[in-house]
């Protein structure tokens, strides 16, 4: 009887594992949100390369990158940041548990990022100077969360 219980438990755990597709806690959520961060970085990279003078300014490419960035602010991310999915639960995440405190004001920082992305969207097609000027606020908005709630690398 006891053996059967163990076997059933093991089977159930294996099943749960395969349903989740991942063994480490919150692995899918962490992967998904990191993917969104990287997608943002990719698009900001297009704008940044122009701001630095590494690639020539291209109004259409700048606009596309800024539009993409704004799109990422419209995704519902409530599933991606479950409480407890921080670095101490899974080292794949660099999120500090502070992120989930009221003090961190993630909603406010999220809104600031959305505003900075919109400002970039408005500026991107209108010339290189506008892109350069909007980069500072965009970086500051990214830093909003990274400053308070990211584990140093």
């Amino acid at each position: 009887m006891k053996r059967m219980l163990v076997a059933t438990t093991v089977a159930a755990m294996a099943l749960a594992g395969s349903v989740m597709g991942q063994d480490a806690p919150f692995a899918m959520q962490i992967k998904a949100r990191q993917g969104i961060m990287e997608y943002r970085a990719l698009n900001i990279g297009v704008l940044g390369a122009m701001a630095k003078g590494e690639t020539p300014y291209d109004a259409a490419a700048a606009q596309k990158a800024a539009d993409n960035l704004v799109m990422t602010t419209m995704i519902d991310m409530s599933m991606l940041w479950p409480e407890g999915s921080d670095h101490s639960a899974n080292p794949a995440s660099t999120a500090d548990a502070k992120l989930w405190t009221a003090e961190a004001d993630v909603a406010g920082k999220d809104a600031a990022f959305a505003a900075a992305a919109k400002a970039m969207q408005a500026a991107a097609g209108g010339g290189l100077d506008g892109v350069k000027a909007a980069m500072g606020d965009l970086g500051g908005a990214c830093g909003g969360c990274h400053k308070v709630a990211r584990i140093p690398k």
Binding site: A51, K52, E54, C142
Partner: peptide, 20 residues
Amino acid sequence: ADIVEYLTSGFTPDYDSAGG
């Protein structure tokens, strides 16, 4: 140019942002 951008917007060359 990378260093100047980092000190201006906080973006690293791979467009991560400064922390800590």
